[in-house]
């Protein structure tokens, strides 16, 4: 009886907890290491034996970042580009999603398949012609180059997310506006948009993150320090002085802040965006 109880109940429970503990170390230790390294002095980072917590907490690395206009500019650039991309994407994406959700039209199916498949086109394949286009348009090394090209991967997301969201709103709502003699345009703005705020927020949040994280296009389509975004800034820091680890970690912590904040404050929206492509709502 007791042995049976042990092997049937206690043992699996203990094993599950052990598994969870191992998983926790695996998932979180590297992140904690980064965080605490940003609060160490540079000499302490490689001290032996290795220690997670700094012996001497210091914010010197953060002060160095905040006192460097070049590095602050990276953050400003990232906020501007990601913000603009989020606004444009939500606007254009919502319009398209409205058509997908409320109308049937020719080419709808083809367009839908096209949008899904654009999510899987390799960025490097697009980058080569983008380089030529951006130079031709005279927008190489400008915000426009990034904002325009980022739309290619944010829009499909936005359209899929927003179409899914609009499909959950009852059609009677906007039909009521049409019956009263309103146009579909006024139905969109008076009824659909106000009701879609949660979907719009989720879309904006996720597109902001996609743009914030982008690396390849930013690396290639900008050139001067004053146009670089945070990921490229970190890459440059790595190349220039590969030994200022604490500053690189401080930049990484600061560069991850928007994601951490959004994740912790709006977890539901974040998860919705994360699984949009894989779990059907």
């Amino acid at each position: 009886m007791t042995r049976r109880y042990l092997s049937r109940t206690v043992l699996p429970t203990v094993l599950t907890y052990v598994g969870l503990a191992i998983g926790l170390v695996f998932a979180v230790f590297p992140i904690l290491w980064m965080f605490f390294a940003s609060l160490k002095s540079n000499t302490e980072i490689f001290a032996l034996p290795p220690q997670l917590l700094p012996k001497q907490f210091t914010v010197a690395a953060y002060l160095a970042v905040f006192n460097d206009p070049t590095k602050l500019r990276f953050f400003l650039n990232s906020y501007l580009v990601a913000g603009a991309v989020a606004v444009l994407t939500v606007l254009i994406g919502t319009l398209a999603a409205y058509a997908f959700s409320r109308f049937s039209f020719r080419l709808k199916n083809a367009l839908n398949v096209f949008i899904i498949s654009t999510q899987t086109v390799p960025p490097i394949t697009l980058l080569i012609p983008y380089f030529g286009m951006v130079v031709t348009f005279g927008i190489f090394n400008t915000y426009f180059a990034l904002i325009l090209t980022y739309l290619v991967f944010t829009l499909p997301y936005a359209i899929l997310l927003m179409t899914g969201y609009l499909n959950t709103l009852p059609r009677e709502l906007d039909e009521a506006v049409l019956v009263d003699g309103g146009t579909s345009w006024s139905a969109l703005w008076r009824v659909i948009v106000p009701l879609s705020v949660p979907g719009i927020v989720a879309t904006a949040v996720y597109t902001f993150l996609l743009a914030w994280n982008e690396f390849l296009f930013a690396l290639t389509l900008t050139k001067s320090d004053d146009m670089r975004t945070v990921p490229i800034g970190i890459e440059l820091l790595m190349g220039q002085h590969a030994f200022e680890w604490n500053q690189m970690m401080a930049m990484s912590v600061l560069g991850s802040l928007p994601l951490l904040l959004i994740y912790l404050l709006a977890q539901r929206y974040f998860l919705a965006g994360m699984t949009a492509g894989s779990v059907k709502a």
Binding site: A27, P231, E235, W245, M248, M249, S252, L259, M274
Partner: peptide, 17 residues
Amino acid sequence: LPWLFTAVIIAIIWRLL
């Protein structure tokens, strides 16, 4: 949490580790 970090930052964390 690992999902939150962008590739560049993941790279730098693991270069340190």
